[in-house]
């Protein structure tokens, strides 16, 4: 009888440990979607920007799906590949620290830090040299890239952001929130539209 009780206890302890681990891991879980559902990507194109082109809101479908492009490690790492494949580095620097185009890690967002405005910038281009990528990338890719750019400029580290490159990096890796470290306010204080200070 006593032995039976101890076996039950053992099973209970094991199950308890497994459940505790499961809860912990479920919190970190990152489901992957290799094939974007065409109706979903069509809905993604329906985001709205403010009339002045600064900031905006993503479509409902994006929230309904749980903001995958900002949260899924796979999408973020695909975004990182797209960053080099589509030549972003030519103007924004291989590390996103800027060049001919603005930096992504200095805390300044000319058109606001929202996902919609980053997607809008990539898709339709912006004045002073940012080309439109509408005809070169699919919606899914544009959102992946935008998610990566947002992770690059985030002030708090995300567990899902990509780790460091295999080649040398001058700034901390994306999963360590480089923008919070490299942040540089510059000579003039920032306009609230252009993003929060860390």
């Amino acid at each position: 009888m006593e032995r039976l009780g101890s076996i039950k206890l053992r099973i209970a302890a094991g199950a308890g440990a497994a459940i505790a681990l499961a809860v912990g891991l479920a919190y970190m879980r990152v489901p992957r979607q290799y094939r974007p559902d065409p109706p979903f990507t069509a809905a993604l194109d329906q985001f709205r920007l403010m009339p002045n082109g600064i900031s905006g809101t993503p479509p409902e479908a994006y929230f309904a799906a749980g903001k995958p492009y900002e949260k899924t490690a796979f999408d973020l790492s695909q975004g990182k590949r797209l960053y080099s494949w589509f030549g972003c580095a030519a103007c924004h620097g291989a590390e996103g620290t800027g060049g001919k185009g603005p930096s992504f890690v200095d805390g300044w967002w000319l058109y606001g830090p929202s996902m919609a405005s980053i997607v809008g910038s990539i898709r339709d281009g912006r004045p002073h040299g940012m080309p439109a990528f509408k005809s070169r990338m699919t919606s899914d890719e544009i959102w992946q890239l935008a998610g990566y750019i947002k992770a690059l400029g985030a002030y708090s580290a995300s567990v899902n952001a990509p780790g460091r490159n295999d080649d040398k990096l001058g700034r901390p890796a994306e999963n360590r929130a480089p923008a919070a470290i490299v942040f540089d306010q510059g000579p003039t204080p920032m306009h609230p539209d252009q993003g929060p200070t860390p």
Partner: peptide, 16 residues
């Protein structure tokens, strides 16, 4: 039409 169903995860996107 659908590269991701034929070869899931490859780098060719589904272009509508």
């Amino acid at each position: 039409a659908d590269p991701q169903t034929l070869k899931p995860g490859n780098n060719m996107p589904l272009v509508p």
